[in-house]
């Protein structure tokens, strides 16, 4: 994986850890809903933050298939590469 992918993954793990304040260790395979209990509003606000960090536009309807941190990182990477 490229360095930028690692950066994306690290940012997501850091942000999700601080957002959820839970004892769960956030990794690439952590499930956003079943393990972190991230509600839809928090996820949408996180997306806005990611958009600003990487200067990309992430449509919220693209989140329909996202369940894990890795899938979210993949989505960000895909959009970042295309922009």
């Amino acid at each position: 994986m490229s360095e930028s992918y690692d950066e994306i993954m690290q940012l997501l793990c850091d942000r999700l850890s601080s957002m959820t304040n839970s004892s769960v260790q956030v990794t690439a395979d952590t499930n956003l809903i079943s393990q972190l209990s991230i509600d839809s509003i928090k996820l949408l606000n996180l997306i806005m933050e990611i958009e600003d960090t990487f200067d990309v536009s992430i449509p919220i309807n693209a989140l329909a298939d996202v369940q894990t941190v890795r899938q979210l990182a993949d989505l960000v990477q895909k959009i970042k590469s295309a922009s």
Partner: peptide
Amino acid sequence: GCILSGADIIRFK
């Protein structure tokens, strides 16, 4: 309405 349209949805604060 946005979801029904299939358009890309971007939110602003």
